[in-house]
Amino acid sequence: MNPDFIFDSDTDYETKMRKVFSYQYEKLMPFRVFCNELGISPNKVEKGDAVPLLPVEAFRDAEISSISPEKDMLRFRSSGTTGMKRSAHYVPDPELYRKSLHKGLHTFYPVHEFVILAYTPGYNENPESSLIWMLNELISTDETGLSRFLVPGEPISPMALDAIKASNKRILLFGAAFGLIDLAEKFPVSLPSDSIIMETGGMKTHRREMSRDELHKTLASAFTLDPSQVHSEYGMTEMLSQAYADGTGWFRCPGWLKISVRNPQNPLEEVPAGKEGLIGIIDLANVHSCSFILTGDKGVQKEDGRFQVMGRFVPENLRGCNFLIDRD
C-alpha cells in the first residue's frame, strides 16, 4: 500500500484512518486476533474512536510489522538496561518516517529559519534510536551546514554560536530532558532570545525527579530565555510521528496523528475532556506496524484536541486488606 495518502489534506482523517485500520487488520495477525477477541472488525466500526488500541507492550513482546522484517530493514529499539526486553519498531519505508518528520515539524515551526543543535549522543553510537535518527535527518538536510550534534559533556561552542548568529538563523536546541539539564547545569550560556529549546522528555531517568515546570524554568534560566521558549516534543520508539508543545505545555498534533485519553479501567472508552487517563495514539504514519497504540502515559485533553502529558500512569491499588473511610 502506498502510504502517501495519509498526508493528503484533501482526504478527511476518518477515511484515512479506516483505510489504515482495514489494512492492518488484514496484514497484522496479532492486531487482528486482538480486534476479533474484542468483537471489533473494520465492517463493524462506526466511528474512529471504536478502533481498539493495542497496548504498547506489543512492540516488546511480538513482531509488530505487516511486512516480514528483513536483515537490513531499518529497526528502532527502545532504550533499556542490559537484560531488559526492549521494544522493536520495524520501518520498511524510511521515506515515510522522513515525510512524517519533516511535514510534522513544518506544521508548527518555520524550520527553514532554524539551525538544529542536538545535545544527544551521535547517530553512529545509537543507530537504533528513533530520536537520534530523526535528529540526524534534520541535521543532514540543513543546507547551511551549521546544524550538528553537540558533544556530550562539552559546552556549546562559542564559535558555533557566532556562526549561527552571522547566518541570521535561529537556534532549535534538541535534547532529552536529562541531557539538557546536565548541559544547563554544567555549561549555562546565553542563547539568542529567539532560540527555542525542544526537550523530548525523559525526566524519569534523571538522577532526580523534576516536574516539567521546574525543568522548563531551569533550562530557560540557564540559557537566558523566556520560559515560553522552552518547548516539548512527544514521541516514542513505537511512533513515526511527533506532537509538539510550545511554552504552554499543551501538545498539538499534525493531521495524521490523533491522541485520545482512555479510561484506565476500560481502555476501549475515552474519558471526557479535562479528565485524566491513559494516552492513546492513532499514528497513521505507522502504516506498516500498528497505528493504534495504548501507552502507559498519563494525560489529559482539552475539547480542541490539545493534550498534556503528566508522567507515567500509576494505578491506585485497592487490593488486599484496606481500611477505607467511606466504605468501612
Binding site: V33, A58, Q265, P267
Partner: peptide
C-alpha cells in the same frame, strides 16, 4: 471479567500468551 480484564485477555490471546 471486568472491561479491563477482557481487554487484557484479548491482548494476551493476540500474543499467544
Amino acid at each position: 471479567l471486568s472491561p479491563l480484564l477482557h481487554y487484557k485477555r484479548s491482548f494476551y490471546r493476540a500474543l499467544d500468551q
